[in-house]
């Protein structure tokens, strides 16, 4: 047990040190690099705290996609050296922040030891009714399916907002020769692992979100090679791609109303099948939404028709 305490202290120190580096490194590029490293150490932390679903999601989404997104954004962001705030203001804000942190730490410590509450006990008792044997998937898609439905709605609104903000970031062409060979190996493997994660989610860590994020990272790899070998995605199929997950989720949720049951209260004997159906559709939509989030704009190059800054050739 001694060795675990040492490992815990090391992980925590690393998390804090990388967070400080990502927040206070002098150049933005350095901060992005430290942030990616921070995400990976946090993924290890989730694994240590017995949360493998989160470790997967953090490594793919938190470190991978967010990191790729930030790196792409570096091109048009300058370091913007601003005048530092006045001395008094800095001291004051640091003092207030210190009080906040200390207060929060005291509140957090007063919560221990933690006992299982009624909702947790209910989840473990009613696990068999959920149709899946992995508790996190049961909570996500059955017991708290509302949360997940609204999460898809949040993702959809973010994707719609991004679609309306202009054309996508262009891929860096100079990397194409390097990544072309890599993409041929990576993309099929990523698609395969997405299917595996989706199927596995019923009884082990995995599920629609991790699988969708893996598919989105396949799209990131393709984007890095320069899109050329990919058929154009039409506006109609893009809409279909984004809407199939949320629509199917709502439709399956509405079905129990015909039997006089509540919204999203699946029949026990069909729950496993319905969850797999919802997750498959959700995976496709999540992949589309996360790809849009990464691209940061409409995939059509000349969108909107009239650009504010016309000197950039699109």
């Amino acid at each position: 047990m001694m060795i675990w305490s040492v490992i815990d202290i090391l992980i925590c120190a690393l998390v804090v040190a990388l967070a400080m580096a990502a927040l206070y490194a002098p150049a933005l590029r350095q901060r992005v690099m430290f942030f990616i490293a921070f995400g990976l150490v946090v993924a290890i932390t989730w694994a240590r705290l017995h949360a493998p679903d989160l470790a997967l999601a953090e490594a793919i989404i938190g470190a991978g996609l967010t990191g790729a997104m930030l790196l792409m954004s570096l091109d048009h962001t300058s370091d913007m050296p601003r005048e530092p705030a006045s001395y008094g203001l800095r001291i004051g804000s640091a003092a207030m922040g210190g009080v906040l942190i200390l207060g929060l730490m005291m509140i957090v410590s007063s919560l221990y030891p933690i006992h299982d509450g009624a909702p947790t006990l209910a989840v473990s008792q009613r696990q068999v009714e959920s149709g899946v044997s992995h508790p996190v998937t049961a909570v996500l898609l059955n017991f708290r399916a509302w949360d997940t439905l609204l999460e898809l709605a949040v993702l959809l609104s973010a994707a719609l907002g991004i679609l309306n903000l202009g054309p996508a970031r262009r891929s860096c062409g100079h990397a194409a020769s390097l990544t072309d060979g890599l993409a041929r190996v990576l993309v099929p493997l990523l698609i395969l692992s997405a299917g595996y994660l989706l199927w596995k989610g019923a009884f082990a860590p995995g599920g629609a979100f991790q699988a969708g994020a893996v598919l989105a990272s396949a799209a990131v790899v393709i984007h890095l090679t320069g899109w050329e070998k990919l058929p154009r995605v039409g506006l109609r199929s893009l809409r279909l791609l984004l809407l199939v997950g949320p629509t199917l989720f709502v439709a399956v949720g509405l079905l129990p109303l015909l039997n006089g049951q509540a919204f999203l209260q699946y029949p026990v004997e069909l729950a496993g099948l319905l969850i797999l159906l919802i997750e498959s559709a959700a995976m496709v939509s999540i992949a589309g939404m996360l790809t849009l989030v990464y691209l940061g704009g409409h995939p059509h190059a000349n969108w909107p028709i009239e650009l504010v800054n016309p000197k950039e050739p699109m």
């Binding site: 997104m69 949360d147 997940t148 949040v154 991004i162």
Partner: peptide, 14 residues
């Protein structure tokens, strides 16, 4: 937290 991670990436992307 899984929901939170996905919402965080969506918000950051926007």
């Amino acid at each position: 937290v899984l929901t939170g991670i996905v919402v965080a990436v969506a918000a950051s992307g926007l």
